[in-house]
Amino acid sequence: MSADALKALTEAHAACRTVVFADMTTRMVLLSESRTVLHREAQQALALRGGRLLSAMDGDAPDPETAWDIAYSIGPDEIAVFLRVPDAPSDALCCLCAPDIDLDAFATDARSCLNRLAGVEG
């Protein structure tokens, strides 16, 4: 089940508060998992924020054919992690985490989760 992938990600990382899987082309939130109640508008806002951040520096990607595929937004109280698949850039995973998240470990697991949802190997 696709929803199980999000649940597994939040369960594996206690500091992960919210995960949203969204289609950036249609700007639709397809799946969400959150430790607290997160209204639809908030989910949508998180997805839009992820889309803006992920594409903000596309013009300056090191290789024109391979855009940035992960972006972080780190604040005093929260870390937002946004991922997309290079081969399917409309699929994005948007996550909100507590500041004590293990960034590298979480990013690896989030990538795996996104690849499963997007049907990408790796």
């Binding site: 924020r49 903000a56 520096m57 300056d60 090191p62 972006a71 005093p76």
Partner: peptide, 30 residues
């Protein structure tokens, strides 16, 4: 310089990073 001009997605203080996770560990990030 272009990056510094970019409108922030968050209220300061904040740190935004762009990486290519599926690329090489020595690949350029911003």
């Amino acid at each position: 310089s272009a990056l510094a001009d970019l409108e922030a997605e968050t209220t300061p203080p904040g740190f935004e990073m762009w990486l290519r996770q599926t690329g090489q560990p020595d690949g350029r990030a911003l």
